[in-house]
Each structure stands twice: as structure tokens, then as C-alpha cells.
Computed example of a mutant assay.
Amino acid sequence: MPWALEGGFTPSFWAFSFGLASMAGCGLRMIAFYSNTGEKGLLLLGWSLFGIGTFCIVALIAFTLLFFIKKLQKHNADA
């Protein structure tokens, strides 16, 4: 996916948010299901999916805020 990052961050990266939220939700379901079964590997996979999905959504929020702050600063500098 290096070609997608060549132009820097844009709000169109939010297209990935549905998949990321689904991944985090699947991780939560795996945690809930496998926490009582003793399946350590699948429980670890659930926590991993939840953690990575949540981290990426938080990163999307942070990069979006930075994107719009930079746009606003550039707009104010031009005015």
C-alpha cells in the first residue's frame, strides 16, 4: 500500500474505517467467546484484532484532526 501513502494523508482514508471497526468488533466477539474456553491462541488473536483495529481508528481521528488544522493554518496564512 505504499502507493496510497505517496500523496500524504487525506480524508479519503476514512474509507478504511468500516473494515477497521469490523475487525475491532470481531476481536471483541472473540474475546467474549474464547475467554472462558481456554483457547489461549484464539483469545490472543481476539485481543490483537481489537487492539490493532482500535489503534488504527484512533490514528485516523488524529491524522484527520491534524489534516484540518494544517488546512486551517494555511488558509489563515493566505488570508
Rank of each mutant, 00 (worst) to 15 (best):
A4G: 00
A79G: 06
T10L: 07
L20A: 11
A4M: 12
L44H: 01
S12A: 13
A79P: 00
S48W: 02
D78Y: 09
S12Q: 14
K40A: 14
K71R: 11
T64R: 02
F63M: 08
K70S: 12
A62C: 03
F67H: 15
P2G: 14
F16P: 00
G41R: 08
W47F: 14
I69E: 09
G46P: 05
S17N: 02
L28K: 06
I57Q: 10
M1I: 05
F9C: 01
F9W: 11
C56S: 10
Y34C: 00
F67Q: 07
S17D: 01
W47S: 15
T54P: 00
S22N: 02
F55K: 00
P11C: 03
W3N: 01
L42A: 14
L49Q: 13
M23G: 01
I69S: 07
Y34H: 14
E6T: 02
D78I: 12
A24T: 02
L72Q: 11
S22E: 03
S22G: 02
A62I: 09
L65Q: 08
R29C: 10
G8W: 00
L20R: 06
D78C: 08
G38K: 05
A21S: 12
V58A: 15
M23A: 11
G53R: 04
P11T: 04
A15E: 06
G7V: 05
G19N: 01
A32T: 09
L66F: 13
F68T: 10
N76P: 02
D78E: 15
F63R: 10
L44K: 07
M1H: 11
F67A: 10
P2A: 15
Q73D: 10
L28M: 07
P11W: 01
P2H: 13
G27P: 03
F68I: 03
G8F: 00
A59P: 01
G7H: 14
W47T: 14
G53D: 09
F9M: 01
K70H: 04
F50T: 06
W14R: 10
S48F: 10
A62L: 09
P2C: 13
R29V: 03
S17I: 00
F18S: 13
W14I: 08
M30W: 13
M30K: 05
K71L: 09
F33K: 15
L43N: 07
M1Q: 08
K70C: 09
L65R: 09
I57K: 03
F67I: 07
K74N: 12
A15I: 11
F13Q: 04
A15R: 07
F13E: 08
F18K: 12
P2N: 14
L5Q: 06
A59Y: 09
L20K: 05
F18R: 11
L42E: 12
L45T: 15
F55E: 01
L45Q: 13
G38W: 04
F63D: 01
T37P: 08
S35L: 02
K40N: 13
F67G: 11
G27W: 02
P11G: 02
A32Y: 11
G19T: 00
G19Y: 01
A77E: 15
Q73H: 04
F67V: 13
